[in-house]
């Protein structure tokens, strides 16, 4: 079987298109590359959606934590503490067990039955956990940036007569984003890495549709040889990380475009590793 046929058979296997059975013996390098690459679809799906939804949630959380009123501040603080203080692995398990307990038949609200069984599936349940998790981490980052918005910027906005929403939209928010961006890039990288945990943490891979690490683990278990499958998965993740750094670097350039050249902080190629 040529490699093109393998790509046709297994290229979209992780989303259920193509050959139904996974290869069982005599694995070729091509099969491993294709199937693990196919699993990356899920990693990108989880990462992109959690990041996109999480962005709005995290700005909200950051504003909440920076608010004067304890009614807004306390919930935001607790939310951040809860999700930053506990392991993601435990959060996945806990969420799965909680979602399993929802009534099987669905919940009846005003005569309309709301299905619940889909929440225990990885595409929804794990995405939800990742979304909350990244919101908390990014919320803390944005909160820190919010507090380091230069006083002069706010005063200048006041002098122009800007208040409330206008001031936030045109001064506070862009500056906050600019200051937080390098740290946020780091968080995005970690989020994509964290997506590799999903299928090891309670959420079952339905019909063997898993992510890159799920397939890498499958091959390593079958061949009892970790030296091929895991490096392939690592290779894909390195590519993904480089792509992310490039993309976020472009956005960073745009966020900093109004600054004089010497004050522009170019993104470091050596991102911090610490979440």
């Amino acid at each position: 079987m040529s490699c093109w046929e393998t790509i046709a058979d297994y290229g979209l296997r992780s989303i259920g298109i193509g050959e139904r059975l996974l290869p069982r013996s005599d694995f070729t390098l091509c099969q491993q590359f294709v199937l693990i690459g196919s699993g990356m679809i899920w990693n990108i799906y989880f990462g992109v959606l959690a990041l996109a939804f999480g962005f709005f949630m995290s700005v909200t959380v950051a504003l909440g934590k920076g608010a004067q009123s304890p009614w807004l501040r306390k919930p935001a603080e607790w939310f951040i503490f809860l999700f930053r203080g506990s392991p993601l692995f435990i959060q996945f398990f806990l969420a799965y067990e909680a979602l399993v307990l929802l009534p099987r038949a669905g919940i009846d609200i005003l005569g309309i039955t709301i299905e619940t069984s889909w929440t225990t599936r990885a595409w929804a349940g794990a995405l939800f956990v990742l979304f909350l998790n990244t919101s908390a981490y990014a919320g803390e980052i944005f909160y820190g940036a919010l507090r380091s918005v230069p006083k002069g910027d706010i005063e200048a906005a006041d002098a122009y007569g800007m208040t409330g929403w206008t001031r936030f939209r045109r001064i506070t928010f862009p500056t906050m984003l600019r200051l937080a961006w390098p740290a946020y890039t780091n968080e995005a990288i970690f989020l994509f890495h964290a997506t590799a945990l999903v299928f090891f943490s309670g959420f079952p891979a339905w019909q063997q549709r898993g992510d890159a690490l799920y397939y890498a683990n499958y091959f390593a278990d079958k061949t009892f040889n970790p030296f091929v499958a895991y490096p392939i998965a690592a290779f894909y993740f390195i590519c993904l990380t480089l792509l992310l750094i490039g993309l976020f670097g472009l956005i960073n350039r745009r966020l900093n475009r109004h600054l004089p050249a010497e004050r522009r902080k170019s993104m470091k190629l050596r991102p911090q590793l610490i979440r």
Partner: peptide, 20 residues
């Protein structure tokens, strides 16, 4: 090595690799 690769891959890889 840890910069671009999820740590969990190492956790799965290192014990088997060391054992072998």
């Amino acid at each position: 090595m840890v910069r671009g690769v999820p740590d969990i891959i190492f956790f799965l890889f290192v014990p088997i690799a060391l054992d072998q």
